[in-house]
Design a protein around this nucleic acid. Sequence first.
DNA 1: ATATTTCTTTTCACTGAATGAAAAATCTCG
DNA 2: CGAGATTTTTCATTCAGTGAAAAGAAATAT
Lengths: 256, 256
Amino acid sequence: MNNEVVYPKNTSKSVTARALAVLGAFNVSEPSLTLSQLARIAGLPIPTVFRFAGELEEGGFLDRDDAGRYSLGVKLWEMGLLTPVHGHLREIAMPFLLNLQYDCREIVQLAVRDGVDAIYVEKLTSEESVPVQSRIGARIPLHATGVGKVLLAYSPESFIEVVMAMQLPRYTPETQTNKRALAKDLAVIKAQGYAKSHQEYLVGSTSVAAPVLVNGVIRASIGIVNYAAREDLDTFAPSVLRAANALGRRLEEIES
Amino acid sequence: MNNEVVYPKNTSKSVTARALAVLGAFNVSEPSLTLSQLARIAGLPIPTVFRFAGELEEGGFLDRDDAGRYSLGVKLWEMGLLTPVHGHLREIAMPFLLNLQYDCREIVQLAVRDGVDAIYVEKLTSEESVPVQSRIGARIPLHATGVGKVLLAYSPESFIEVVMAMQLPRYTPETQTNKRALAKDLAVIKAQGYAKSHQEYLVGSTSVAAPVLVNGVIRASIGIVNYAAREDLDTFAPSVLRAANALGRRLEEIES
DNA sequence: ATATTTCTTTTCACTGAATGAAAAATCTCG
DNA sequence: CGAGATTTTTCATTCAGTGAAAAGAAATAT
């Protein structure tokens, strides 16, 4: 008589990796999830997720509302603040961005490179209606925006080659997907010290961006954008440059 | 012959809790740690932390620099952005804060209540030299600051009683630690719709704060502060009120 | 240059903690 | 109120985590 229960092989992942998968289930369009959704997205059995979620909630990594829906917890937000990208860059950059915003009243952006794309670390806009363009944390291509091209232009030659070797997606008719043309763009940017971009990513958008150099090494990029096809945006180029330079100097000062 | 090795009892905590303890080892003053420090602070054996740290790094939750020092990873920052406090509050509030900053050029703060204290969700200042007062993410008492007292004043009576029953720490000679006097303060705040605070937390600081009400329920508090004993700060009270009201209305609109 | 200390990484015998099917409890909605 | 979906508990089973010890690297002193 064979009444033994079959316990299927525990698939690959470590306990820690599974727990993290639960946190990883959330994303911008689904910032709040039920237990079953969580389990489905994380690819784990419901009781397992139930256990993890309980522990994560305990630690403040997850929140659970009255309806039983989970969302990421305040603890994660607090930890994010301890991250170098926030604590060491955004925090220091903020006054410079604010003053730039004050000067030109355009959308101000701060971006860094992460892997082969750029991430918006901060975006300041006084427009109350939220245009979902360029959320903070959003990843954008290096070859098709002002801040992106600046980050690329000042990167080491070896890295530029890696990016050039990739398939460069086209977003608008103006996107530079031709490697030779892009290389020329980058040269121009380095020559004049800042980048102009005209609807290369989004039709109607124009941007001006400058590098934040710390002891000559690119650290971030500051830019202003206008989505309403404003042609004379580069009258603000000196302001953008001033902000980027000042931030670079401030960072040098702090790190010395 | 007894040569058996003694394997001591595995102390209490679950695997997940231990992994999270590793992340929890970081804090504002120690945003970057070596393996040994990490192990000491987390209270775990080095090899255990070594294993965890490897997995956490794998998932982007930790970063390791060339010197081998660990810091919290970009993934955590990205997750923090998905948190309701950022995605649903800070993001929407930002333009209102920015415009308020534009109007009065004072330090602008956005705070929410979390447990029995307030947390700064955003702080805008155009001052480039960083006064470490009120970091974003910092917890501040409810009874001794402008934004705190507003959050308290508009909280349910039952919660106010809980806070009143606590020992209210004194920070300056002006701090309201007397329960009766504090209750009167709160009544005044509700009557006039905003709070004034004069060096109750830090000598020399003055603040004005107003509630962000969503369908009549307190959600956050917006304030301006000046650390240079500026007496006439309340000339900006109408601006602060306008910003807080506008944000409240915007949130109602979005949530309907 | 060499010894000493400190920190990081690997190994491995051992077991405690995680697992998930199944059942029970609870919630939802026609 | 009953059928279906979702959440929570239970529990027999075993697999993944454990941390002492030793080896390997770095940093620091002699």
